[in-house]
Amino acid sequence: MSKIISYQRPENLEEALSLLSLDNHVPLAGGTLLNANEDMEPLHLVDLQSLALKGIDNSNGKLKIGAMTTLHEIMKNSDCPDSIRLSSRSELPSTLRTLATIGGTIASCDSDSQLIASLLVHDAAVTILNSDGELSVPLQEVLSEPERLESELILSIDVATDGEFILESTGRTPTDKPIVAVATRHCSDGYRMAITGVAATPVLVDPENPTASLQPSSDFRGDSEYRMHLAKTLASRTLNLLNGEK
């Protein structure tokens, strides 16, 4: 547990933003990452649980998921596409899934996150609140500028619900965080593909040339060459499966 200097639980968004604008004040969503980190600098925590940011709304052809909705709630909600539900389930085990939030998951920018990859291919857009008001930002832009979340608040995520989806991954064990995972969605205007484990965050790639300009880092689970191999292999596999090939 990091050294926590203060804890506050604002009752409205204005209050929350005002607190987050102060030095060393950080948002606390589910807490599975923040509370587990023993090495962070002293922090003031701003708990978001009272800001009415939960909920799943499937009207208007798009799915809106409140940022404080837990992965467990997403998994259980039949309004969510199976792809998002399954990705939520595989993201974390049972005792952490009930706490972790979709907003917190996005803010983590975890390069191994299958859920983030799934959201990317579902054309996820993040509704963010800052001092200028609300704006909708494509998820891949949020991931490319994670520092913006230091002073902005994720309110909700909009995702498309149509299309077919396949996720292929390679890990040490069946439920391990993948070394590399490829999420591909086939929708009315073509394919979307996202890959984990090959960049600082999960990335959208060109399905026709998925590994172009990828320069994955190495770690003990897989070096860069192996990760590129996995990316190519799994990308091809997802496309074949979506095309009904074996």
């Binding site: 804890y7 587990a36 925590l45 708990d47 952490l96």
Partner: peptide, 12 residues
């Protein structure tokens, strides 16, 4: 719901 209390702050 089953949740790990190690990662829940008492304040939360």
């Amino acid at each position: 719901l089953l949740a790990s209390s190690e990662v829940i702050l008492a304040a939360q």
